[in-house]
Nucleic acid binder design. Sequence first.
DNA 1: CATGAATGAGGATTCATTCAT
DNA 2: TATGAATGAATCCTCATTCAT
Lengths: 217, 217, 217, 217
Amino acid sequence: MGFSRARTNEQKQQRIDAVVKATAHLYDTVSYDDITFAAIAKETGFARSNLYIYFTSKEEILLELLIHDLRSWSEDIGEAFHVRKSYTVEEVAEGWTNAYLKNKRLLSLLAILFTVLEKNVSTEALAQFKRKMMEVQHRVLELLGGLLPSIHEEVLEQFLINQLALVQGLYPMAFITERQKQAIEESGTGYVAPEFASSYLNVITALLKNLNKESIS
Amino acid sequence: MGFSRARTNEQKQQRIDAVVKATAHLYDTVSYDDITFAAIAKETGFARSNLYIYFTSKEEILLELLIHDLRSWSEDIGEAFHVRKSYTVEEVAEGWTNAYLKNKRLLSLLAILFTVLEKNVSTEALAQFKRKMMEVQHRVLELLGGLLPSIHEEVLEQFLINQLALVQGLYPMAFITERQKQAIEESGTGYVAPEFASSYLNVITALLKNLNKESIS
Amino acid sequence: MGFSRARTNEQKQQRIDAVVKATAHLYDTVSYDDITFAAIAKETGFARSNLYIYFTSKEEILLELLIHDLRSWSEDIGEAFHVRKSYTVEEVAEGWTNAYLKNKRLLSLLAILFTVLEKNVSTEALAQFKRKMMEVQHRVLELLGGLLPSIHEEVLEQFLINQLALVQGLYPMAFITERQKQAIEESGTGYVAPEFASSYLNVITALLKNLNKESIS
Amino acid sequence: MGFSRARTNEQKQQRIDAVVKATAHLYDTVSYDDITFAAIAKETGFARSNLYIYFTSKEEILLELLIHDLRSWSEDIGEAFHVRKSYTVEEVAEGWTNAYLKNKRLLSLLAILFTVLEKNVSTEALAQFKRKMMEVQHRVLELLGGLLPSIHEEVLEQFLINQLALVQGLYPMAFITERQKQAIEESGTGYVAPEFASSYLNVITALLKNLNKESIS
DNA sequence: CATGAATGAGGATTCATTCAT
DNA sequence: TATGAATGAATCCTCATTCAT
């Protein structure tokens, strides 16, 4: 019983990956508060104290997972569009939306990114996270520039931020738990939770069309 | 020493108000995790166990606070516009944005409403919260209908939801802590956090203009 | 299973006494590092978390125990001398020494009082301890003044402090563990640990005689 | 990166010295409980596990440091007196006291020697420590015999032990922390901590004078 | 000899919650 | 209703120590 030591950097990375993977599994199955170092240790088979060598809080691990999902999402976007082709605004909006739908966990992590995850993390870890996140953003920005060559880069950056805000806020309103559904039912208010895909698509289509006008004028 | 009994309903409401007020003060001064029943009890002067008579989790209290702030916000919107007058889309957007800026705590509570607050709450409490929230929404919807008489009510509802999603996501991106600022600095990425007022104004102006077209067509 | 609540102040004092008593037992049987809140909880039958209502560190409890032993010692001194009688310096020294020998645990607590116990204690708790300790000292000083009426009070105070220093340092040199004895044996140095009673008696006799001269001159 | 192997005994001694020196620095700057193998490893640059080759507990290291300081102290005593000259009791007492004042860390280590340091040490390490300590004592005893030729050696030995006890007990009463000062203040008892130099000087002067009489009679 | 990953154990502390009065 | 002692569970965190390389 017990793990052999991770001597090389490669092995060290394997340990980190194992921890992130285990945390991902936990994230998909249990509630946020039940993701603890104890649970992660159990899931990985590591000793709890051993985790402290690699991470100092669960939020740090989840940021790592977020980066992973973010890269997967950016790849999906890349694959959704061909470089040579030219696309209408509606087509861009649809491909974009689909990439999110393929990465549901990314959506739910983004929803707590700025309010929860970034709170219990050291400044250094946060800085490194920001670096990795900006890398992905740059890649996506380039891609978007290729799709919408008529729009200024700064305007596209602004769009990226706005849609990110929208995604963060819309996700938890759209994907609600059974208990939330029941509460709505019991409230008798007739409230209907928004449908993520159509709402998101709607808004970003409006935003993208607006960009065109901004850039022209 | 000690509190006299709350016999009447009125006294009971006074107790509830005292608890909410104390929690509001805590919310403004300490971090979310440091808002505990122990801290609230200390702040109010009540015994910890006594709080269980009125609330069963701190999230329940915070939902109550959210409702309070929501009403204050809706009143601010009401005061921002005169019923008789007619307003341009830009004027509506600006008044709307200002009402949010007057209620910063509401913004920060909305930012965790669906991801954090609604999680640790009984279905009954949640249902009641939904009822109160919808009351406010109806009032605001009526008001908005008066301002933009040409738009269908359903479209306005959709707008309300979309801007709520935007607000939730934008707030924590715009209002960041010192540590977050420092991390961004250290990351050397040149990332600049969005400015809430202008970003929000920008997007909802686009959305409102779009509504016009939708309704016309 | 479980304790009934300590409602009155008297019951509260009973709880405190129970904790101190259990800690005393532990102190007599296990090593200092093995006196933990967990061990005390086990010994008393209380829940560990319940101890935090009464004390916040084991040092606080041990200070309480020290006070208890100090009072017992001062009573022993009181009983050793009759008020009416007059005593020679040698008789005073002997009675004084015997009172210490009757309170071995006091000796061992004094030996760590300033180096260990006073370290991990809140300022408030320490202040209260000082108050209680000075109470005992005053009583003892009065008693000593009755025995040696020719000596100035300030000189007696000085004596009290000097003998306390001596007692603290001498005790751990005289009462040594089996392992310490064995190490001395193995060292082959022929070192002989001092015998507490005779060494202490010797020194304070010299000090007391010196006091006489100081006061005369 | 990393340390080259210590093959020869000389290199081994260098390692030991480095560890002792690092521990000395720690002892002067942080609290006793914060002196851990982890901290020492960090201070030296060694790997934690490497320390186990040379020492098995921090107390062992501190005993080594104590020996070092003890030798420094004995040298200071040697330099304070000329062999040929004859000294009064008062002069001896003063030189003796000054040697302690020059070696404050020795004082603080002596204060925990028998109560703390000797506890968590193997019998062998303790035996070796005793041997080294007795070496110093012999040197000092010889020196003292030269200064006070009229006193029997056994009586001088007794004096050495008594003053050692006094030093151990007096030091922590005289040199108190800020928190202890504050607690005394808050206690309102008017207690005044003894002044080390004068108190120590006073007592050993009395003891030395008494020795004269003992030996004469 | 030197390393540092891995372990296990334990201690401090706090929280939500109950319950007798 | 109001109290606060009492509980149990859980978390965080660090330390000494081992062991394969």
